[in-house]
Design a protein around this nucleic acid. Sequence first.
RNA 1: GUUCUCGUAGCUCAGCUGGAUAGAGCAAUCGCCUUCUAAGCGAUCGGUCGCAAGUUCGAAUCUUGUCGAGAACACCA
Length: 562
Amino acid sequence: MEFKIEEILECIYESLGYKGYNIVSPSSRVELCDYQINTCFSISKSFHISPTVIGEKIVNEIKLLDNFNDYFKSVEFFAPGFINITVSDKFICDNNMLLINDLGISKNNSQKYFLDYGGANVAKPLHIGHIRPAIIGESLKRILKLKGNTTISDVHLGDYGLQIGEVIFSCIRDKKQVEDITLEYLSIVYPLISAECKDNEETLNVCKNITLELQLGNQKYQEYFKKICDVSIKDIKEIYDYLGVSFDLWLGESDSYDVIPELISILEGKGLVSLSEGAKVINIKKLSDTKEYPPLILQKSDNAYLYATTDLACVLDRKNKYNPDYILYVVDARQSLHFEQVFRVCEMSGISKSTSLEHIAFGTINGLDGKPFKTRSGETLKLRELFSLVREEFISKREENKNLSEKDLDIIVNSIIKFADLQNNREKNYIFDISKFSDVSGKTGPYIEYTALRIRKILNENKPINDNLGSFIENKYERDLRIKLFEFDKVLNNAVEERSPHFIAEYVYNLCNLVNSFYENNRISTLEDEVLKSSWINLLALCYKYIEVSLELLLIDIPSKM
RNA sequence: GUUCUCGUAGCUCAGCUGGAUAGAGCAAUCGCCUUCUAAGCGAUCGGUCGCAAGUUCGAAUCUUGUCGAGAACACCA
């Protein structure tokens, strides 16, 4: 909508010689106006004229426009330098088509994004720490697609590091045959061996050696490795399915191993690799650095490869196979140094040339004490446990909830968890409060779903016949709603630029709030004016679409009833 | 120790590239169901944006300092 107003004002700015200052912003004082102009101050600075003089001059020119009343209800100057714009109802109605056609979404980008957002570890079941990358990554993927980009997603399993060596060691020590390995066994054994290795250096060394042997292709270890992956991936897939999170590629660290020789020859060819304490390292310091950067370790002194090596090889592989414009790594903020190291080596060696690498960092999930979340018994909460906790809590809220179908319950549980998470700014840590997560009133997933169901009921009883929104506006509830719909594309742009879905969550909540106000104050069923009735039904049908599309971006479905 | 991130209402969080009187939800108090789902709508209460300087017409937002919390810092991922 802002750009429509800018179009109208362009000739004025041009004639006054203020080209480039024609910027219309959303209103920060909704009770005063719909839109505002704040650029009088910057014009003032450049031209050394008082902002009041400039503002009044612009306002006067706007008022002289031939079709002023078609566009504006009022345009006022406010000291010391604001211009407040209230658009006319006619202008809103004249631009209906903007809303109806593709919900006003401009497909203004068409780039290729590669998203890396799984990071599941095959040695252990998915737990609370895996929820953010999954839903933030999936949400970003959907947002980018809606704006016209192409996306490729990769789960990038953690499948070839020390943790696998540790699990294989346990299997052999427990005399487990390959075919006897089960999910239950894996979930018990990993915490045990992981703890043991922290205390017992001897065991740790054996595990490290198994990891190295595995990487070198040891037949027996490979068999264990494959079985562990099979068992684990089946479970991981089930959980991602439950969350509605999907991937185009199910690759892991192990898939990058074939590329490592090519990687090393490129890096050595550029003269970047040096030996330090027996390990092959790359010095990533720059002259402009103000802080210390440890070198990236390419190959350990025992010849095994590390996380950084596979990540580098992986960049090379993705470049070769897909050549994306961007690679987004949706990974915990605590790994920012790791990515800084990897990205620097990519830049120094040129292997990422013309592809932007971005670490889409997110904060950790903490408990009520502000420390990383643990269950009461001090363990990490598994995702399946989270789902059932929330489900039980939701059912306990109301007697009738027991009668909901399994499918609807799953949809609602998903909405509770996802909306609670995605409404936060992704970069910050946040406190995981199970009672907050399960809350169903206020700013929550169920609130949005409830709103959608209220509208759906009306639409089922009054089928919209056409798209027409009507060429007049009856009251402020209708007006507020219509203005809100124009905002959607801008919200999407923000979400893309900031790589953060919380803009969408904020928007759909506010939209639902307006829809509920409209609902409470405008009763459609008893309306006698058929023209108005039809117009309102169409408006609600349109709002439903906006809610549906927004929710889809947040990986939330609408249940059949609540 | 060095570096990075964060500090906004009792609690949990928004605040878009510096704009006008800093916004939501929860909690608390109150009002609204013979009428399309009250998991709703409306109202009240609640703030020295950690603190102190600086930049400028204007700072929660930018800079510096300071206090507090968290995280990362060479062969784990």
